[in-house]
């Protein structure tokens, strides 16, 4: 579904990614790893059109992201749920409204029963009326995951979703992502947590990609 063809990305201070070609097939589960600053977040941003490659092209369903209009990019983002590293909430709205935001902001009705079920799934029902700043790191990440999946997207991208979480909470979040993958969603998680990757490998077939020296490699059996 998402296709990278000889993609390079230049921040202006030098090339961050070079000659990356990759296909994320529907229903696949990928990890993207690499040291801090290697370009993992940039790679994800290229996937949903927040950034455009300086060379090569990124296509979603064979459509070049660069050729899309602003409204088409908006429509694309409804099909790609993103769990951002810093969650990106509207702090003045309650958690429940933040989670429902992709529906309300695109003119879709919100079914209270569905919203409650989703919040229960991520274990946030008692915190529905709290404001995001009142949540812990783990609760914020779970709320971000709930928001990312509320539109039932085809693809879920997660940028360091367990970065600030303890191991138990990380596993819980991983379990949620694996459940989504089993429902047929394509999942790509950017992380440098090798234990998380090992845990996932023991439960579902995953591909592990690594960004090294600006290029994308398939990680070896050490993982």
């Amino acid at each position: 579904m998402i296709d990278f063809q000889n993609v390079a990305y230049n921040y202006g201070g030098g090339e961050l990614l070079t000659d990356i070609s990759l296909r994320l097939p529907p229903g696949s589960f990928h990890f993207l790893t690499g040291p801090s600053g290697a370009g993992k977040s940039t790679f994800l941003k290229l996937c949903y059109g927040e950034l455009h490659p300086t060379a090569g092209r990124v296509t979603v369903d064979a459509r070049d992201l660069r050729s899309l209009t602003r409204d088409q990019v908006a429509a694309l983002r409804c099909r790609i749920g993103v769990v951002h590293q810093d969650c990106q909430f509207l702090d003045h709205l309650p958690v429940a409204e933040n989670i429902a935001l992709p529906l309300t902001a695109t003119g879709h009705p919100v079914d209270p029963a569905d919203l409650s079920a989703l919040m229960g799934w991520v274990g946030l029902m008692p915190l529905a009326q709290h404001r995001p700043p009142q949540l812990s790191g783990g609760e914020r990440q779970r709320a971000a995951l709930a928001r990312a999946v509320i539109m039932s997207p085809d693809v879920i991208l997660a940028d360091e979703p367990t970065g600030n979480l303890d191991w138990d909470m990380s596993l819980r979040l991983l379990t949620l992502l694996i459940e989504l993958n089993k429902m047929g969603k394509t999942v790509l998680i950017a992380t440098h947590d090798l234990n998380l990757i090992r845990s996932a490998k023991s439960q579902v077939p995953v591909r592990v990609l690594r960004i090294r020296d600006r290029r994308l490699q398939l990680a070896g059996s050490d993982l």
Binding site: Y48, E50, R70, D71, A74, A75, L76, R77, C78, V82, H84, Q88, F89, L90, L101, P102, A105, T106, R147, M151
Partner: peptide, 8 residues
Amino acid sequence: VLRLIGSR
């Protein structure tokens, strides 16, 4: 944020 979640 609104843009990231697909708002027009």
